[in-house]
């Protein structure tokens, strides 16, 4: 704080902090509360299909929906067992 603001008792401009925090939490909550009703089903279906070809654990397949700017990205992560 500069000596000027010490004298005049300037208040901190905290509104921008509020806006940034809200942008993050609202985007996060929208993502987790809206779309992903179908994600567990999708995960189950993927496990069923992939285990036809590879022996996989249900836990080795991770499905997530992420928002990046104006796009929604469906991320599917499949870890194949070692020594395959």
């Amino acid at each position: 704080m500069s000596w000027l603001s010490l004298i005049f008792g300037e208040k901190k401009a905290t509104a921008s902090v509020a806006k940034e925090r809200l942008q993050l939490i609202i985007a996060h909550e929208r993502a987790s509360l809206s779309g992903p009703d179908f994600l567990p089903d999708l995960q189950k279906d993927l496990v069923a299909v992939i285990s036809k070809y590879f022996p996989v654990n249900p836990d080795d397949i991770k499905v997530g929906l992420e928002k990046q700017g104006n796009y929604e990205v469906l991320e599917v992560n499949i870890v194949l067992p070692e020594g395959h």
């Binding site: 401009a13 905290t14 509104a15």
Partner: peptide
């Protein structure tokens, strides 16, 4: 105006 409160546009 003083940056203490979210604006209506925010």
């Amino acid at each position: 105006h003083d940056g203490e409160m979210l604006t209506y546009t925010d």
